[in-house]
C-alpha cells in the first residue's frame, strides 16, 4: 500500500507542478480510525495528506457535477478513481454532465473496499492503534492486541461481486495487482432472491424499505442522482405523497431504482450512505444484471457509449409481452 500511496503522491505532485490539473480529489485519513474522507488537494504541500487504503470507499465522482461549474473555466480536476468510480464518471460524461477534458482520471485498480462493520463488529472493545493491510488480510493493532481479518470475507457486497475492478477509462493508472474484468452475472444474491416466492419477495422488499426514513442519503450519495429537481419533490404534478407511509416510501424507491436502469454501476454508495442500512443493492443490482443479460450492456465503460434507453435494436427480446392463443 505504501508503494501505491507514494506513486499516487508523486503523480499528484507532478501534475500540480506542471499545472496539468487545478486540484486533485483523493482521500485522506478521517478523524475516526478505519475511515477516510474526501481530500481536495490544491497546493503541493498538501499532497502528503493523500492516502490509499482499503477504506477509500467514497465514490468521488458524485462531487464533480456540482463542483465543475463552480471552478474557473478550463480548470482540470484530477480525480482518484476506483473501477466503479471511473464508470460512474464515464456515465456522467455519457450523460453530458461532464466533459472528458474536464477531468484527469487517476485510475487505480482496486482490490475491493473493506466493510468496517465487519471489522468493528468483531472487536473486543479494544482501541485501534494502527491498521495494516496486505493482499490477504487486514490487521488491526489494538491496545488489547492484534486482530486479523480475511480481506476477502470483509469486503463490501458490491466489491465481492465487482465486475470491473480496473477503471474503464483513465489518464494515469496505478496498478495494484492484476484485476481483469470478470463476469459476475447474475449476482448470487439476486439469483437467490429471484428463486423466492412472490409474496416472500414482496415481504422482504417491504421489510427492507420500511426502515427508510426518506432522508435521501441514498440519493445524495449516488453520482447518477444529479437531477435539479427530483421527481419525488415535484409539484405539477405531485407524483406521490411526501409522507413516510409505506406506499410513498416504496413509490420513491421503485422509481428511483428504475431511473438507475442502464446507469447504475453497482458502486454501493447508496447502501453505505443509508443510516438505516437498507439493502438497496438487493434491488439496484437486479437491474444491473437484467440490463447485462437482456441488452448485453454495462454502463460506464466508454465515454462514446450511448445511453441504454437512448438506442434500441429491432431484435430486442419481447418475451415479457402478453400473448393470447
Amino acid at each position: 500500500m505504501k508503494r501505491v500511496e507514494s506513486e499516487l503522491i508523486t503523480n499528484v505532485e507532478e501534475l500540480l507542478e506542471d499545472k496539468k490539473i487545478g486540484f486533485f480529489m483523493g482521500y485522506e485519513n478521517g478523524s475516526l480510525p478505519l475511515r477516510t474522507s474526501p481530500c481536495f488537494v490544491k497546493e503541493k504541500e498538501d499532497v502528503q495528506r493523500l492516502v490509499w487504503n482499503c477504506f477509500c470507499t467514497n465514490n468521488l465522482s458524485v462531487y464533480l457535477v456540482s463542483l465543475i461549474p463552480e471552478l474557473p473555466a478550463g480548470t482540470k480536476v484530477g480525480i482518484l478513481c476506483k473501477g466503479c468510480d471511473s464508470r460512474s464518471l464515464v456515465n456522467l460524461i455519457v450523460e453530458k454532465q461532464l466533459k472528458r477534458e474536464d477531468v484527469l482520471i487517476m485510475g487505480i485498480s482496486c482490490s475491493g473496499m473493506i466493510n468496517i462493520d465487519k471489522l468493528t463488529g468483531n472487536l473486543d472493545g479494544g482501541r485501534i492503534l494502527e491498521v495494516e493491510e496486505n493482499e490477504e488480510e487486514v490487521i488491526l493493532k489494538l491496545d488489547t492486541g492484534e486482530q486479523r481479518f480475511s480481506r476477502k470475507d470483509s469486503l463490501y457486497e458490491s466489491c465481492k461481486n465487482c465486475t470491473h475492478p480496473t477503471p474503464s477509462v483513465y489518464d494515469i493508472l496505478i496498478r495494484v495487482g492484476e484485476h481483469a474484468p470478470k463476469s459476475v452475472c447474475p449476482d448470487p444474491m439476486i439469483a437467490k432472491f429471484r428463486q423466492k416466492e412472490r409474496l416472500e419477495r414482496w415481504q422482504i422488499f417491504e421489510r427492507e424499505l420500511s426502515r427508510c426514513v426518506r432522508c435521501y442519503a441514498c440519493r445524495n450519495a449516488c453520482p447518477n442522482c444529479y437531477c435539479k429537481e427530483c421527481f419525488a419533490e415535484q409539484t405539477k404534478p405531485r407524483w406521490f405523497g411526501l409522507s413516510n407511509e409505506l406506499s410513498d416510501v416504496l413509490f420513491y424507491h421503485l422509481v428511483r431504482i428504475l431511473h438507475q436502469a442502464g446507469r447504475c454501476v453497482d458502486c454501493g454508495a447508496c447502501v453505505r450512505a443509508c443510516p438505516e442500512k437498507v439493502d438497496l443493492r438487493l434491488f439496484t443490482r437486479m437491474l444491473v444484471d437484467e440490463v447485462k443479460e437482456r441488452f448485453d450492456y454495462e454502463p460506464g465503460l466508454s465515454p462514446n457509449d450511448s445511453h441504454l434507453l437512448g438506442v434500441f435494436s429491432t431484435d430486442d427480446t419481447q418475451e415479457f409481452m402478453v400473448e393470447v392463443d
Binding site: 450523460e95 453530458k96 437531477c227 435539479k228 429537481e229 450511448s306 437512448g310
Partner: peptide, 26 residues
C-alpha cells in the same frame, strides 16, 4: 428548463431531430 439537466437522452431518442442541447445553458 428549470428541471432539465441537459443529459441529452431525449435528443438521442427524437426521431424528428426536434431537440437539441443548448451548449451555453446546458
Amino acid at each position: 428548463e428549470n428541471r432539465c439537466n441537459g443529459c441529452g437522452l431525449c435528443v438521442d431518442i427524437c426521431a424528428y431531430k426536434a431537440l437539441e442541447i443548448d451548449p451555453q445553458r446546458k
